[in-house]
Design a protein around this nucleic acid. Structure first.
Length: 254
DNA sequence: ATGGCCTCGGTTCGAGGA
């Protein structure tokens, strides 16, 4: 089974690209972030016509997450039950015996921002919840936009990013904490080409100059990591007309 | 160059993203 994650930066704008990508890559599961649409306006019919069942949780203007699946989705949970949050950033469901958690981690804006405090406390709440979840669901996958570049090799120009959000030590420590809990970064389980990223700034020809960050990740519990035979970043949709600034990450589970 | 670009809401600009 193939599971994937993609921050689409507005599903309303990106629906044609999502449908095209699914036609080219009929993955079993696709987790979406930044759908930016209220549930009443979610493009359910179009995605169902493409062969997918969908669980979604949106809000006006910002955030919003969804899970698309070729198989039934059961036990859907919206948001972290241990962390009160107005913002719609988490949706979970069980598919083919695998617990899928789709997450849109807060950006944090800057190190001196209230949004950075929120990001760190949000991640703490995530840790707490996952400790419970991994007991209940040994086959657990956490996919999404983490807004954390785990290491300097995940940053096009580490020196230029020093002191900025997405690479700060507390954020990276929160990512390491997930690894200490037993989760494996699927991408790093395999040998990968250097300078491969999942996000590029729209400005200053960021993509053409490969000025990117690897901030979208698939983390797998130990039993799932043992079943994972590949993990790739698909840069193709980033080259299309009117792209998202993120591109999909795909893992293969045997 | 405390910017550039994209999306949204809602009007022609500000907020937020990363």
């Amino acid at each position: 089974m193939k599971i994937a994650t993609w921050n689409v930066n507005s599903l309303k704008v990106r629906l044609p690209q999502v449908l095209q990508w699914l036609a080219d890559n009929p993955v079993d599961v696709l987790c979406l972030q930044e759908t930016k649409t209220v549930d009443e306006k979610f493009p359910l019919a179009e995605l169902e016509a493409a062969g997918y069942q969908v669980a979604f949780s949106g809000q006006k203007t910002y955030n919003g997450v969804a899970i698309l699946s070729r198989h039934p989705i059961t036990d859907v949970v919206k948001n972290n039950p241990l962390y009160a949050d107005e913002q719609q950033r988490i949706i979970a469901g069980t598919i083919e015996g695998v617990r899928i958690i789709c997450a849109y981690v807060p950006n944090g804006q800057s190190l001196d921002s209230d949004k950075y405090i929120y990001k760190l406390s949000w991640l703490k709440g995530l840790h707490k919840w996952l400790e419970q979840e991994q007991k209940q669901y040994p086959q657990l996958a956490l996919l999404g936009d983490y807004n954390i570049a785990p290491e300097d090799r995940d940053v096009h120009d580490p020196a230029a990013w020093v002191g900025q959000v997405l690479v700060s030590e507390p954020e990276r420590a929160a990512f390491v904490r997930l690894q200490e809990m037993g989760f494996t970064d699927a991408f790093r389980k395999f040998e990968q080409p250097p300078k491969l990223y999942s996000w590029w700034d729209y400005r200053q020809m960021g993509f053409r100059l490969n000025r990117g960050l690897r901030i979208d990740h698939i983390l797998l519990s130990a039993p799932l990591a043992a079943r994972c035979s590949a993990c790739v970043i698909d840069k193709v949709p980033r080259k299309w007309e009117q792209p998202s600034d993120h591109t999909p990450v795909v893992a293969t589970i045997d």
